[in-house]
Design a binder for these strands. Sequence first.
DNA 1: AATGAATGAGGATTCATTCAT
DNA 2: TATGAATGAATCCTCATTCAT
Lengths: 204, 204, 204, 204
Amino acid sequence: MESPGKQQIRTQETQARLLDAAETVFVRDGYENAQLDEIAATAGRSKGAVYNHFKSKEDLFLVLYEHRTRAYVERLFLSLQKCKSRQESFAAFRAFYVGLVGDRIWPILTLEFKLFALRRPESKERFRKAFEMAKATNYDSTHEQLFGQITPDKKSGNEMSALALGPVLSGLILESHFEPEKLSEEALQRILGRIFDALFPAPR
Amino acid sequence: MESPGKQQIRTQETQARLLDAAETVFVRDGYENAQLDEIAATAGRSKGAVYNHFKSKEDLFLVLYEHRTRAYVERLFLSLQKCKSRQESFAAFRAFYVGLVGDRIWPILTLEFKLFALRRPESKERFRKAFEMAKATNYDSTHEQLFGQITPDKKSGNEMSALALGPVLSGLILESHFEPEKLSEEALQRILGRIFDALFPAPR
Amino acid sequence: MESPGKQQIRTQETQARLLDAAETVFVRDGYENAQLDEIAATAGRSKGAVYNHFKSKEDLFLVLYEHRTRAYVERLFLSLQKCKSRQESFAAFRAFYVGLVGDRIWPILTLEFKLFALRRPESKERFRKAFEMAKATNYDSTHEQLFGQITPDKKSGNEMSALALGPVLSGLILESHFEPEKLSEEALQRILGRIFDALFPAPR
Amino acid sequence: MESPGKQQIRTQETQARLLDAAETVFVRDGYENAQLDEIAATAGRSKGAVYNHFKSKEDLFLVLYEHRTRAYVERLFLSLQKCKSRQESFAAFRAFYVGLVGDRIWPILTLEFKLFALRRPESKERFRKAFEMAKATNYDSTHEQLFGQITPDKKSGNEMSALALGPVLSGLILESHFEPEKLSEEALQRILGRIFDALFPAPR
DNA sequence: AATGAATGAGGATTCATTCAT
DNA sequence: TATGAATGAATCCTCATTCAT
């Protein structure tokens, strides 16, 4: 009871360090090959510490995904909030998307997550909820901010397109690991831009 | 001279069965979770038989990838050979690509392979070679058949675009497993078509 | 500061138990047929515990050999330290050697080790180092204590003879397992004594 | 039925080749690590052939040991037969023994055999029988040829000494693999000679 | 909260042996 | 007799998880 504040801080720091370490190791080695031992060591903690903060390896993985997903969505919302017009919003959206090529980690983590979830119906459920939750926060208003009020039909088309953005990005980033020259960051930006424009024909 | 024939046939059949079983199990469970036991059983063979045909689990995985890759490339070349004009060829190419959405297996297998290769530099080498070999077979003539003689600059752009096709497909197929309704086969075809057209603006 | 003590004690006890169990099982079954499972069980521990203390079966085997070798060499040095004269020392040396027939375990273990090392050049290296280290500790002074200052020529002869002692013992102990009556402990003592005297003609 | 002679020759040759190959591989790798596959390959035959000639790996091992043992005993008897006097016989016996250091294979094989037999009471039986048989052939007359008619007491002493010869040789040869310089063939001959003389004080 | 020793289920791999040819 | 594909028992080792400290 001496310094609960410090304790809490320590606890939070451990959590954060573990999550960072987990991201590093999961992405580097893949979920199955990632060793809790190594995650703990990378975080400067011991194996046991992981279990004080997470129920299991799977739990750590899911919490990590939830964190990172939330962070990205929040970033997007933040950048959208600053926009004054629909055009501006739309441009910000596009820029945000194309800018994602700068991150070699997150898209791989996402692939890893999805392949993981694909094989575990139980986790798949939690996985989707996490994603929905993050997305849902401001979904409708965001959509309107970007596209205005449009027919349900068009809206569903937009949803479909939006759904495609992530996977396309992930696939390309993965490929770029094998063809770093032909798929340079610049090249990827151009490709992503073209694809974005194909999926979201600029509102008149 | 009857026996060698029978032996050979048996051997080939076993190989083929093992590869088919491997594809099923690897895609269903992922590389790490796939059990040799189950692959063997699925093939109607015993665990040991796998090791008469493949050096290791990894080897089986790589050989499987090589086989399937080669098969796809050959299918594409075959369909191109029938074409009489550049337009026809190009249309065939597009159709081939868009038609790939019908296969839920191969794109997932490819993702699995690439994430696998990403973590094993040695296999990465072999992996790329297999792909190159298959691609190389008729590459230049194919390119000319599709695009005619164009500036090296444009050619390199086409290469980049070609490189993007597979990853985009894989990413989308994976996502469709989570959103089977929003990303129906039909929807995927439309998206893929649009992306294809964005990457390869139709020649004139 | 109670816990680190308890932990350490537990750790040491486990190590010691595992080494004892390993000795029992390796000698009884031979290196290849010895099962880690059984060693662990004999030690009252689980299979996994072995791997917390030793890198591999091979490592366990080598560490065991190092331990036991060291212990024997130390015993010899200890008994030599008590001696007052060269004659006494020499007699103690002889007695020590002849007394080794009482141990049916150690000579067999040594054979097992050497045949093992013969087939693994890497271990052979470590194996020799362990032996050298143990031997080296007091080698020169011991030699002088036993034989006085003698010509290098004679010294090298003594070295050769010393080298022969162990193998001769091991060979005989092994044989005595097949001819327990003809090669009783008493008989072995007589034979060993005679051989010792032939190899080290008593210093006047 | 065309050429039974040729068939038989082929059969015998295969047997001999398999035994030679077995000796090579068993000595090089040890019984447990020796692979039937490799033995067969070394013999220029296939794995299956081994089973046409031997019941099992163990059987092959035992037959090999029996063969080699018999051969050595026969060689000794042969060289003794030529001797005219007891002195000559005795010298021949000594020379035969000391000469054994030239063979780096057989003593190791013997060790391997004995450690093997030690752990398999069933084989131990067969093992001893093989040895006895070989030895027995001419045992009593040989003994008399070497030592004349002596008291049963002395005879039993000689038996004991004779029993020691093999193990001593094996132990030393094994050690010489680790100390090839200090235990050169020449050095071994000197040591063996001294030990022989200590075990068999020259008759009068 | 943190540590790390211990657990033990799980799985890839090896290889003697069998058997159809 | 010879071959070698197929079998499957056997075992080392890994690593997520637990728990006493």
